[in-house]
Amino acid sequence: MSRMAPFWKTKRLTEMTREEWESLCDGCGRCCLHKLRDEDTNELSFTNVSCRLLDLQSCRCRDYPNRRRHVPDCVSLHPSVLEEIDWLPPSCAYRRLAEGRGLAWWHPLVSGDPMTVHSAGISVRGRGVSERHAGPLEHHIVAWPGEEPNPKRPTAVPAGKK
């Protein structure tokens, strides 16, 4: 019996169903962190300050279906805007697939476990600050949201060695 390749390996982003597209989100929360752009140089700076709707424990939006009602400038990702967006983190599945890199081992669609994005240290869990408590964004500039993570795969523990 042959197994079919997963949809993200056989379809272009523009060919995916809405359900497939939405399942690409790994739940890291990095795209929900505020960014600053220098008006003169156009340079982008990342912060560790999250949108007020981001649950910093689950790293998911508290009201995803209605988020634009609460946060009008929240960007809705879809294939037609990916080329215009320069702030998606390098770990983002949408960006990775658009660049032909495939999904990382810690992505829930690959690992089969929605917690690997957290255990691998990819998510904002434990590193983000809500905009409700942060103060000036300029005081929260960090590099890690815009850097390519290099998490180590956990090594299997042989039976009886726990």
Rank of each mutant, 00 (worst) to 15 (best):
H118D: 15
K11P: 02
G146A: 12
G135L: 04
Y94F: 15
S119H: 14
D55C: 04
V142Q: 01
S91P: 14
L56N: 01
T17W: 08
P151H: 06
S111T: 09
Y94G: 06
L44C: 10
A120K: 02
T10N: 04
M1H: 09
N66C: 02
T47H: 01
H78N: 14
H118G: 09
G146M: 03
H139F: 12
A156D: 03
V117C: 13
H70N: 05
M115P: 03
M16V: 11
P79N: 11
V124N: 00
E147A: 12
P136D: 07
L97K: 05
G27W: 01
P89L: 04
D38K: 06
E15I: 04
D55Q: 02
V49I: 06
L103T: 08
G128H: 03
P65L: 10
G29H: 01
P149H: 12
R60V: 09
V157F: 04
N48G: 00
I141M: 01
D40L: 11
E15F: 07
E131C: 09
R52M: 09
Y94C: 07
H34Q: 06
K152P: 01
H133A: 07
R52S: 14
V124D: 01
M4H: 11
A159I: 14
G135M: 02
L13W: 14
R95F: 09
S45R: 12
I122F: 01
T17V: 06
E148S: 15
C61V: 03
N48P: 00
S58Y: 05
M16G: 10
H107L: 05
T47M: 02
G126T: 01
E83L: 12
T14H: 07
E20P: 00
V81C: 11
R96A: 05
V157H: 04
R12G: 15
P145E: 04
C51Q: 06
T10M: 04
C59E: 00
E43K: 12
H78M: 13
V75L: 15
R67H: 06
L82P: 02
G160N: 08
L109M: 06
P108H: 11
R95L: 14
P89Y: 03
A120L: 03
A156V: 14
H70G: 06
K9C: 11
L137M: 02
D86H: 15
L44N: 09
L82F: 13
